[in-house]
Amino acid sequence: MRRIISVLMENEPGALSRVVGLFSQRGYNIESLTVAPTEDATLSRLTMVTIGDDHKIEQITKNLNKLIDVVKLVDLTEGSHIERELLMVKVRANGAQRDEVKRSVDIFRGQIVDVTSNMYTVQVAGTSEKLDAFLQALGEHTIMEVVRSGVSGIARGEKVLSV
């Protein structure tokens, strides 16, 4: 099962490499990983998408918790939550294609953030599924380059992950 694990950790050098190292050391896989400091500069927030059965996920969270740098973590997929990923894509757009691409962008509520006479750079935010669908919708147009941020997530309602 796909899980989104959100981690608050000390914003210290080496902390990220310990998390990543743990995953390779124990043979867990990372689908995506995002990390940045929080409003409290001493803390970083890391969001990781991983795949595994309940047993594996339990081991992952236990071992993450064991890392000295990890302050707190939550498996967002255990409750209702919001997840977002940002996609930017350069897509070839000439002549009639320009309108077609624009229509797809509108349907997916994306934005064109850069243009040349031959291409658009499009930005779309949403769940990973939505981004996949958008790329699929662009299908027949030539995709020149894709960059995705990896998933960030937050729980719905009053629940917060903080120290």
Binding site: P13, G14, S17, R18, G21, Q25, I68
Partner: peptide, 14 residues
């Protein structure tokens, strides 16, 4: 050294 020893320490400091 912090990198070499990372998988075999409880923690490390530079």
């Amino acid at each position: 050294m912090v990198g070499c020893s990372r998988p075999i320490v409880k923690h490390s400091f530079l």
